[in-house]
Amino acid sequence: MDDFSNPPSVEEQRRFRRRPVLWKGHVDLSTHRLECRVLNITPGGLLAELELPLAAGVQVRVLLPNVRPLSAEIKWYADGLHGLSFSEPPAQIRAAFGNKADALGFNIAPDPVQ
């Protein structure tokens, strides 16, 4: 298993309700664009498969269809999956998704931490 950092704690994992999706998109680094497949998304971040492993702490822009570019940071990588945290406040992420935010459950209160 390639692991560039520790996976997030249970508290971080449950900050928002995850919405399973299967979207194609791109992740822009300073000089490269990688294809990605988004597996779940929240107002706080997303889970994605990328073409190449990226280390925790790398700053990226996430490009999804019909959504403005979103700034994010790679938080962890394990078993081919990347956890990304959006760099913008959840309210701005909700606004970026427009009408899709309601369908994705972004306007619902986060799950309580157990």
Rank of each mutant, 00 (worst) to 15 (best):
K75A: 07
E12S: 10
P65C: 06
A109L: 14
P65W: 06
Y77Q: 06
Q92W: 09
S87A: 10
D2L: 05
V58S: 01
L34G: 07
E73Q: 12
D3E: 15
P69C: 03
I108C: 11
V21I: 11
T31R: 15
A72H: 05
Q114R: 13
N40F: 02
N66K: 15
P65N: 08
M1V: 14
R33A: 08
Y77S: 02
L50G: 00
V38M: 14
T31V: 13
A95P: 02
P112G: 07
A56S: 13
E88A: 14
E49S: 14
S30Y: 12
D2I: 07
N107A: 05
S71W: 02
H32L: 13
N99C: 12
T42I: 03
R18W: 06
R94Y: 05
H32Q: 14
Q59S: 14
N66T: 13
N40E: 04
L84F: 04
R14K: 10
R15G: 01
C36G: 12
R68F: 01
P89S: 03
G57D: 00
P7G: 02
E12K: 09
G57P: 07
E88H: 08
S30P: 11
W23F: 08
L34Q: 06
P112K: 07
R17P: 07
F106M: 03
S87M: 06
F97V: 00
M1Y: 14
R15P: 00
P89N: 03
R33D: 09
N40H: 07
V38G: 07
A95W: 01
A91S: 15
Q13I: 11
A72P: 06
I93Y: 04
E88W: 07
D111P: 12
R14N: 12
G98L: 00
L84C: 00
H26E: 15
P110N: 02
A78N: 13
T31N: 15
V62L: 11
S85L: 11
R15M: 01
M1P: 15
Q92R: 14
G83E: 02
D79K: 09
A101C: 03
W76A: 12
